[in-house]
Amino acid sequence: MPETESTENSRIINEKWFTETPQGKALAGSRCRKCGRTYFPRKRVCVQCFEDGRMEDVALSRMGRLYTFTVAEAGPPGFTLPYAFGYVDLPEGVRVFSPLGGDFARLEIGAEMEMAIGPIRQDDGVDVIGYIFKPV
């Protein structure tokens, strides 16, 4: 999967956001060993129980439910119109803001979504590779 690595014509938006799993790249989060709250991206201090240094790395679920979304007909430079984005609720209790892909006509609140890796925008002719959720 060449598109998951940075190349001359593409770069990963932030390597720290991802972790390798047998199923491919997943979002890299942190889970508090004391209270169980899970975060994306990784962090050090739990803001629910204020425990420091007891976070464990977790690979977040690649599946989630669409909380809300929009299809944008106007946007900043680098995005090809129209493009879609929304919030996806993961089973770990994490809400992720994400570009949305697939068939926009199938986007609806509550839809089951699956994470993919791909270009989300262009930056001076270079594809910026990030996570994208698509309807299953």
């Binding site: 929009t70 944008a72 106007a74 946007g75 900043p76 995005f79 984005f85 919030y87 570009p99 989300i120």
Partner: peptide, 12 residues
């Protein structure tokens, strides 16, 4: 950086 816009925020 992932494309959010304010019209988009309030559309959501």
């Amino acid at each position: 950086d992932l494309g959010i816009t304010f019209p988009g925020v309030f559309a959501m």
